[in-house]
Structure formats: C-alpha cells, structure tokens
Nucleic acid binder design. Structure first.
Length: 574
RNA sequence: GGGCCUGUAGCUCAAUGGUUAGAGCAGAGCGCUCAUAACGCUUUGGUUGGGGGUUCGAGUCCCUCCGGGCCUACCA
C-alpha cells in the first residue's frame, strides 16, 4: 500500500468557478484520489480556497461586506459546490486560516535566516481617492502606442504592448476612475529565487516523466532573459497574512501582507494541519504527509493545476521549500491542463458566458458533468465545450451504453427469473471470452489511471461498458431461454454481476451512479476486481436485487436548445 | 517581438521512426426484440495544413511557410 498526497490548485475566493476551472484541477485530482483509494492506497486529498489579494477586497467592497465575512460566505458557497460535484477532499481549507498565517510567517522567517529575502524599496502608484496602492492592472489609461483608451497598466489589450503604469496617458484608477494618482515609495520583500536557479533547473531536469506543458513553462521562466527573476512576495494591502519573520515583527514592514502567491501554496500544508486540528489529531498525523523527517519519505505527492498555475508550482513554491532548509516534502509529479473553451470562445465571468458550477448542478446531476469533462479533459491542447457534443456524448455513453445495459439485463431477469440472481447452467467459451476481454481492458484502464491519462482511461472504461452489450447481444439469453433456460440463467447471472463490476470500476468517474448501481444490486462489496472471474461471481445465485430506475435519462433536443440560449451570455457590443 | 503547444475522416480524438493511419459520434446497410426509439454486426469516408529535406522506411525527425491556442513574471 502506497501513501499518496494529492493537491488541487486552490480556487480563488472571488466568485463561482466555471467548468473550465473545475476540469483544470479539482475534478481530475478527485478522479485520481478516488481511484487510488479504490486500489487500497492511503490518500490525503487537499484543497482550499485562495482568499487573499486585491480582487477579494474589491469583490467584498462591491458586495458591501467586510472582506473576512465575504470570504467566509464564499468559502461555504464553494464548499457546497464541491460537495455537489462529489469532490472527495479530505479537507477543504482556507488560505486565511490561522494555521496558514503561522506557517507562512514561519517560512518567511526561515527564508530570511537563510539569506533568501531581500528588502527592496520601489515606486508604486498610489490612489488617494481609493486610499490604496494599485496593482498595475488596476490602472487604466490611454495607450501611448496605439491610442486605445482602456489600456491597462501592465499591458494594452488592444495592441498587446507591454506597458509600465507610468507610460499611460491620463492614467486613472480602474476601481474608482479617479485620476488623483501619485507615485509613492514603498518597501517590499523579494524572494531571491534567482539564487536557487541552478538547483531548480537541475530538479526540473530530473523530472523526465512530467507533462511537456509543465516542464516547458518552468524552463521558459528559468532561462528567459537573464534567467529566473526574484519575485516580490509582499503587498500593501490590509487583507492577507501580516508580514512577520516567524513570530517576530519585521521592522519596516508594518501594515503589509504577504502576496497571495506566497501564502497560497503554503496553504496546501496548512490545510493538512487544519484537517488534523479539525479531527483533534496530533501534529504527527499531518507531518507524516509533509515532513520527510517524520514519515513523508515514502509519500508520493501529486499536484493538479491549470497551466496558468505552473510557474508558481514549479519554481516559487519549490524555492520556498528548498530555501527553508527544512525537510518539507517536494512535489513528485505535476499534472497540468490546458484550457476548456466554451462554444467557440472563452468562458467569461463578466459576460456570464458559459456554464458555472452552480448552474451546471441546477440542470443536471454531477455525474453527467463529471463524465463529459473528464472524458474531454484538455490534456494535450485546449478543448471545447459545445452543447451538441455534450448531449451526444452523455446520451450515447451514459444513457445508451451503460444505462441501457443495466436496464435491459435487470428487466430481462425480472421477467424470466424474478428479482434475484438465477441459479443453474454453467459458463461456456463465450463467458471465458468476455472475462478475457474484460481482464485485458481493465489492466489497460488501470495503466491509464496510474499514468493520469484521463481521456484514454475514459475511452477504455467506455469500451468495457460496451463489451457487456456485445456479450449480451452475442449470447442472446432471450433466444436461448426458449430452448435452454439453464443456459439463459448462466448468461443472466454473469450479466447481473457485470453491474457490480461496472459500479466499482466506474466509481472514480461517476460516483453517484455507481452508488445507485451498488444499491440496486444490494451489495456493499466494492472491492477492486483484481481477478475478474472472481469479481463476476460476487453476487451468488439467489442474491436479490432491485430493478433500478432509469440511471441516466437522456438530454432532449429542447433542453439543449434552451440551455444553449441561456448560457450564451451577453455578447459584447463592441 | 520571444518562447511553448497544436493542426490526422463531416465532428471529437488515437497511433515507442516500422504491415494497408485507427476508434467513438454522425452517414449508409443488415440483424436482434431483453431494453431508455435502446443493442450488435458490416460499411462509406484521409494527398495526416502546404512545400522541401534526412532515412531502406516519416503522421512521427529536420528546415520553411500558413492557420489555431497559450505564456511572457503586479489578476490569481
């Protein structure tokens, strides 16, 4: 039995996430966690909300609430949606937790002790009207290059030119519109990750089995220009982890907080302590996952994230861990994803374009979404959600291939033998052929799941479902029954056992349907089919079952058209 | 501008440099009647974006052009 630590990139607190966010980290992480648990491994699956930073402050202000209150509410919203999608986190934490505050300050202290923190005085734009420093992108003005009047302080979206806020003509605050801006000096801490460049470079080079997407992004940052640059890890904000050196004050840094991307990954660790604390367990229980001197040596740590998060997980966070000089667990494998687009464009929160997690659950059960998203996960390139594809995939795969199989065999059995696994007859070459087919397919499925080849795993799983229909069609118990009822009983007995087999192996993808299948077969035996022949004998003759209700109803054309219109969003007039 | 990814059947995607480039969906035909108008079998469909090169052999490697996408360090 292995021990596997799994973290999903932590979603930002600001608003409800869309399906692209879901499939980019949390959902595949859940698939992997569920699979590994099913195989008998010890799993710690951690996620949390990322709560600090300017957007959270602004969203809270817009909602007319104190930021702490806003975050607490949004955490609950996101938690409920995670539950709705059956994300099986062992703990869903908060980056604003006291545990993370303490741990973040601890890391900063260690980094400072080791000479990896530099204090830098720099000039930033301050808005008097807003009473705050403004991040570059919160400053708008006219682009000196192309004249576009909504250019941002970091880049002009119209001509794509990189800008400095001071380049803008007639700059104004994007928050209030105020032009009462000034440049002020302010002091910040920088993580001297450039000092760790060679070590990081070597470390990345050693990860030859990582997705190209992951390593190429890391290498780009390591080798671009003068190499890895130091990074500011503090901000002039109210909402965040106060800057401290361990438990000591940090002279000159009063009133400042750590930058979200410094404290967010540390929350992976802190959330595990939150988990232990919530269960009244001692520190040793979370440390055995994270401290290589306290049992984490044999832990395999896998991270899941969208490609936008890769630099922080391949460079900044490892730099934090390496730089601490303490024996914290480094990531072993990073599975990264491209983006999911929506019907010819991007998901857009501001335009309400695309399907968001709350709306998705309001129209269909989680399994529908899980199946489509995972079987179309953007592993090699960006992929696209269309309602037509969603409808045909779900109807065909779930309703026709899997759902109808359950239906046809249970109803056949009820009409000929009653609602119990029939006795009599024996297995012949057809059954052995099916068992061989299922065994080889299952081994392939396992290999894809181990390798986190998600779409390939989904394809193989579907093929295993289809194999049941092929078998049933060829064996034709409804015909055989007329001349040899015992033989028909044997075919039916095997087919009913297939339902439990499918429930067990499909559970990581469609947990609710699997549970319904197990309930219908009145069994709690969810042991993984190491030996397929044995697994297909789990339900013995005489074992009673219930003919299930329609497990997956089909999506109608009317529904598809309705949803297509509802989620198209407001096309921008421009 | 720079870097990376990507382009394969109408659609979504496979194919350690090695038989005749394969699946699913959609289309066509046949079969079955247990079932959610479901299932099974057969089948049509390709100048692998264009061009050049390396090789006994290229979807795969190299060069070049074209298209799509992402990243580019103060959104997170």
């Amino acid at each position: 039995m292995a021990r596997i630590l799994i973290t999903s990139a932590i979603p930002y607190i600001n608003g409800i996430k869309h399906l692209g966010n879901l499939v980019g980290s949390q959902l595949p992480a859940d698939l992997y966690a569920r699979y590994m648990r099913a195989r008998g491994h010890e799993v710690m699956f951690i996620c949390a909300t990322d709560e600090h930073g300017t957007p959270a402050e602004l969203a809270a202000a817009k909602a007319g609430k104190p930021v702490a209150e806003y975050c607490a509410e949004m955490w609950q919203v996101q938690k409920d949606l995670s539950d709705g999608f059956r994300l099986s986190f062992d703990h869903f934490g908060r980056s604003s937790s006291p545990q993370n505050r303490k741990l973040t300050q601890h890391f900063a202290g260690k980094l400072a002790e080791n000479g990896l923190i530099e204090e830098v005085t720099e000039k930033q734009v301050y808005s008097n009207a807003d009473g705050r420093f403004l991040p570059d992108r919160y400053i708008e003005g006219t682009c000196p290059n192309c004249g576009y009047d909504k250019a941002r302080g970091d880049q002009c979206e119209n001509c794509t030119k990189q800008l400095d806020p001071t380049d803008l003509i007639e700059p104004r605050s994007a928050i209030s519109g105020s032009t009462d801006l000034e440049v002020r000096e302010t002091k910040h801490l920088y993580l001297r990750q450039s000092l760790l460049k060679d070590k990081l470079d070597e470390w990345i080079d050693s990860k030859t089995d990582w997705p190209i997407l992951t390593t190429s992004i890391a290498r780009k940052w390591l080798h671009d220009g003068d190499g890895l640059r130091d990074r500011g890890i503090t901000r002039d904000l109210d909402w965040g982890v106060p800057v401290k050196k361990g438990d000591q004050d940090w002279p000159g840094m009063e009133g400042k907080v750590f930058y979200v991307w410094f404290d967010a990954p540390i929350e992976y660790i802190a959330a595990t302590k939150e988990w232990a604390d919530a269960h009244g367990q001692p520190d040793a229980d979370w440390q055995r996952w994270w401290r290589t001197d306290k049992g984490a040596d044999d832990v395999r740590y896998v991270q899941f994230m969208g490609k936008d998060n890769v630099p922080f997980h391949t460079l900044s966070f490892p730099a934090t861990i390496m730089g601490s000089g303490e024996p914290w667990k480094l990531v072993d494998y990073i599975k990264s994803f491209n983006y999911l687009n929506y019907d010819g464009g991007q998901f857009s929160t501001s335009q309400g374009r695309g399907v968001f997690m709350d709306k998705a659950l309001s129209i269909l059960p989680a399994d529908y979404w899980r199946w489509w998203l995972l079987s179309h996960a953007p592993e090699n390139s960006d992929s696209e959600f269309t309602w037509e594809n969603f409808q045909t995939s779900v109807n065909k795969d779930l309703a026709d291939v899997l759902g109808n199989f359950l239906s046809r065999i249970t109803k056949f059995c009820r009409s000929k033998f009653g609602e119990a696994v029939p006795d009599g007859g024996s297995y012949a070459t057809e059954e052995q052929g099916l068992i061989d087919r299922l065994t080889s397919g299952l081994r392939t499925y396992e290999e894809h799941m181990e390798a986190m080849e998600i779409r390939k795993a989904a394809t193989e799983l579907r093929a295993l479902w289809a194999a049941g229909n092929e078998y049933l069609q060829a064996a034709a118990p409804w015909t055989v029954f007329k001349t040899d009822p015992d033989r028909a009983a044997a075919i039916t007995r095997l087919s009913l056992n297939l339902i439990r087999f499918y429930a067990v192996i499909s559970r990581p993808f469609i947990p609710d349907a699997s549970a319904a299948m197990m309930a219908a077969m009145r069994t709690g035996d969810d042991s993984w089919p190491e030996d397929v022949a044995k697994a297909l004998a789990a339900l013995p003759p005489g074992h009673a079952f219930t003919v299930p209700e329609v497990t997956f109803r089909k999506i109608t054309d009317e529904e598809r058209e309705d949803w297509q219109a509802r989620f198209a969003g407001q096309r921008s007039a421009a």
